[in-house]
Design a protein around this nucleic acid. Sequence first.
DNA 1: CGACATCGTTCGGCGTACCGAACAATTCGG
DNA 2: CCGAATTGTTCGGTACGCCGAACGATGTCG
Lengths: 106, 106
Amino acid sequence: MPSPLGDKIRALRKNKRMSLDQLADLTDSSKSYIWELENKDDPKPSADKIGKIAVALEVTTEFLLTESSVTPDEAVLDEAFFRKFKAMSEPDKKKIRRIIDAWEDE
Amino acid sequence: MPSPLGDKIRALRKNKRMSLDQLADLTDSSKSYIWELENKDDPKPSADKIGKIAVALEVTTEFLLTESSVTPDEAVLDEAFFRKFKAMSEPDKKKIRRIIDAWEDE
DNA sequence: CGACATCGTTCGGCGTACCGAACAATTCGG
DNA sequence: CCGAATTGTTCGGTACGCCGAACGATGTCG
């Protein structure tokens, strides 16, 4: 019944040995709501709350929200690719972006 | 009366020559709601909506929520591109990597 | 064991995020 | 210029994010 988001919040919170109350205080929330985020079926918090929770738990909002279903090996390759890409000139990057966009119409 | 978030969404949307309807479709929203985000006083969208809007407009959620300029800088575009790349299938990624590698022998 | 503190859980209700459908404005081919 | 798309705006209603306060569990110290 809990969601991936809920699992991450609970894991990070317990890892920091925080109570629901403490995390609630840090995030301008109620502890009942933090509990809901951790245990309810498919929580859809506001961007505002997620931002504050990410700060309190010292992670990025991306990490909290994305499924992270990529295998580690693949993630390493992705990072390597990203480094190369960032090193390119802006006009070249623009061309690459166009290629990727065209890709999506199989 | 509009908010910084609203200004960014409108600027990015028009830059891509999208209508409210088109952006709404891409983000599982209604056009009336997109209009509210762009024009209302202090919109507080869900993390879900902001995430989808960021993908559709090819920027990061960080940029939408925190940054002050309405035009994303190169780093933001890079991150958005990287997110798209990561979502692709591994065979497709392999092809893209080849393209990038070939690029480097000007 | 009992009393007190601290943590987690439940629940009723208020406010608002978000919607659909109708209306107003703008664009554009004939 | 006229209609018909296409875009943007307004508005009433509904679902649910988020809350406070009460309740149950668990632990700790005498």
